[in-house]
Amino acid sequence: MEIVVKINNYDDVKQFNNADAYLLSNKFVSFRYSFSFSLNQIKKITKESHLNEKKVYILINKIFTNDHLIKLEAYIQNLISIGVDGFYFCDFAVFVIAKKYNFSDKCYFYHETFLRNTYDILTYQEMGINNIICSKDMHIDDINNLPIKNKEQYGIMVFGYVSLYESKRKIISNFIKQNNLDKNLVNSTNLSIKEETRNQHYKILQQNGITSIFDNNIWCYLDYSQQLAKHINIFIFDCLFLNSEYVSKVIDLFKKSLNEKISMNELLKLDNSLSFTEGFLTKRVGIEK
């Protein structure tokens, strides 16, 4: 099992000694992150991590227009020369560029809604995209259909706040402007929206021109770790909005859960103020309620 953690800051490298790999973000290629790592920082972390036999992946979850492709290619070249271990991407352009530099085997397709059935996943693999991160809404029954022989190439996010909505519309800036509010509000990581007839607060974050809305609960697949591990070899933990020390303890629990049954109570003991959901792992949603 490879434990990948999307880290919050530079110091997290030490904090997450129990992880196998770090997922780093950069503002040119990523959104929905706690920290944008410069190329120099990525270089330094990669060097240190390799000394400690850890891997470094770069989150490239933005989609790009033609006028960004030259800069994107240069950036990818730089990352490859630095020695990073792979990219988590969702735009085919990233894969095409990586292939040009013989780096396609180290690309992980990270489309958060399209990779929820085995048919499409296998087709993408036939197209040369070998490494797949299952979508947030892939059901456990469908995960069980993933061929075990490909297990090494499959990953899934098992813990963290999950984004439900991505928009190019700057929703917070718009609200601030309409209501003459303090412009700094846009930088708050404690913003949420609440629908007038519901009680839940959904976290909302505007970053790099993209607005994301998150589920109100943390998605946690602790109860299913052993079952998932039969078909999936990469567990991803996202620290966004969460304390790194806390997530590190959660990783310990998950690792333990691979060998023995760990109840959710163990998790709640770490912080009982947080609430959790299994997302769509065990829940099918349909057309009508």
Partner: peptide, 13 residues
């Protein structure tokens, strides 16, 4: 739907 914005769980406007 109709939403309101909160910061630290306090209504912004």
């Amino acid at each position: 739907w109709v939403y309101n914005l909160y910061n630290d769980n306090k209504l912004v406007s």
